[in-house]
Design a protein around this nucleic acid. Sequence first.
DNA 1: CATCGGCACACT
DNA 2: GAGTGTGCC
Length: 705
Amino acid sequence: MPSLLYFIVEQRKQPDLRGLPTAVVQYNAWKGGALIAVSYEARKYGVKRSMRGAESKQVCPQIQLVQVPVARGKADLSTYRNAGSEVVSILSRKGRCERASIDEVYLDLTDAAETMLAEAPPEILEVIDEEALKSHVLGLNSEDGSDAKESVRKWLCRNDADRRDKLLACGAFIVAELRLQVLKETEFTCSAGIAHNKILAKLASGMNKPAQQTVVPFSSVKVLLDSLPIKKMKQLGGKLGDSLQSDLGVNTVGDLLQFSEEKLQERYGINTGTWLWNIARGISGDEVEGRLLPKSHGSGKTFPGPQALKTIASVQHWLHELCEELSERLQLDLDQNKRIAHTLVLHATAYKVSDSDSHKKFPSKSCPLRYGTAKIQEDALSLFQAALREYLGSYTAKMQGSQNNHWGITSLSVSASKIVPIPSGTASITKYFHGHPSCSSTKQSQNNLIEEATPVPPSGNESYSEVNVTKPQIEFPGEETMIKYAETSSDQLEDKIDLLNDQNPCCSSTNQACDEFTQETVLVSTSGNEHCSGMNQSQPMKNYSGEESCVTLSMPSFNRQEQKRKAVKDKRTCSILRFFKNQDPSCAPQKLEHVENTEDVKAPPLSPGIQSRSNNCLDQNRSELPKERPPEDAGDSNVCGSFQIEHRRGGAWSYNIDEIDPSVIDELPPEIQQEVRAWIRPHKRHNTVKRGSSIAHYFLPTKNT
DNA sequence: CATCGGCACACT
DNA sequence: GAGTGTGCC
């Protein structure tokens, strides 16, 4: 956990730590605990994460070690989570915001940048924000002798710049302001990257730390990537990056350019291959998701070495602690965000003393999640026992309770996933999630039903004997929810939207008493053609005047057939359409029948790469609705022609997706936004390349050249 | 044994 | 859809 956030949070608690070499450590007992965050001052002394506390004292005797809070015998990260939420609530003011991790956020500032460019472009500003002037602009030849700030100012305010760079400049101003805002309101500092897509923004954000921002002009992308070590790219820091280096001899991102998309797909599968081909060119269609809340909650702990758990009783004890924390967080999520988790998952790792198949993994198990701490504890234990039996296989060590010589548990974790917003009119429903005893009074007759739906009622047959009262309410989250929305009065609807505009509902009730100082990462992508950081800048963007359809720059637009193709899919769509219908009569579908034509949609005769690139580039043409893929962009002209992806349509899809005003989408509750965007975006393709059962296969040498 | 605990996502 | 594995912070 390299997160500096942890450090800053602690610094905020103890201001006198500022300027001192400091590290955050958890569990002081064994060798001084593990370092999980190290201040820059401490780094100068050679202190690294991966060191133990005692070790760090050796290289830096004066280091200040601060401990992670402990609750229920385990690390409690809630203060850090809350700190992240504080920042998110500020950053989400200016655009779509994705909370990528506890200390990382992506923003889509396209709209804000467009607006600024139209209404108050940098060139007319009289006073230039000092913070913006401190930006690092990649590729800006700071001609010796000239002041860095002055050249940044010139770049930011250049009148004759490419429009894409103008948007980035606006983004730089907006980000500078946001960072100041964060500092003012939370005392945390943050770094940021400003670029045309997420992966480049992410890359840039790490280039000048701490507390600085870096811009990647469109024209600098190629130079930047050419010599960039491959493993610096997000997602390539692990085995995939290793494989690129050792198997393909790719050491820099630029080295990737020599491989055809097909070649990369051959080796790494369709999706990864295409993804690699694209990022080599600075292209990424990865969208900023508009999600301020986590998709799952988990609580876990490791029991290394001699601490391994060897009795059911000890496992039960720790599961109780973990489940208690999880339950508490679920309850908070429910109260604050009106969301319900549907699935409980148990993970563990174990060792088994040498026996035949002794390095089998301890299996994960899941079951429907029932609210209430006691129920969660009970279910988690049942899951554990089921997994343990499977793990131990044939020989069932009967010895429970007392020491056993056969196995030991070295880690335990419980998590809750499939979290969806509560349908609506929550008041009467939510009480059932507060662990009310009333839950248990349900009919036996339904037990079978539940048990059937629940694959793992391990030992205790009573584990699942209680019917989950909430079930009927949440069984069809997608459809039900949408319908509820559709039926909601406009008042309630506004509530939903308020929730969204409220910035961060999840921290509304949390601390604003802030006094300190922090470091966090802000990643920003902006610009209309955000996905298109292709190398080929020779082609100026076409112009357009958006009237044609209700396309806004905040969303990629595709041609109509394309949209139709993507829109099909699940029945959930149907309910969403209803939502739209009620929302905006002007876009109302005439009929809601939808067609099951997704299956016959044999992939059109073009590669996914082409598909992706096309999509990316359409952005440039926005309202033009090109009939064919524009030749510009990615240099590789062999990809053109393919745009009729869609001619596969055929079906009787009766809803004109084009008629949905995309700007409306931004105003929907986040979960709906997500779903709606999902249709409009290209979907991942199934990997048709058969290669064996594991993805590790991709990393193995292949016969075909 | 001992980089912890935690997320997200791809793949089968 | 459940379970595994990877990768990041």
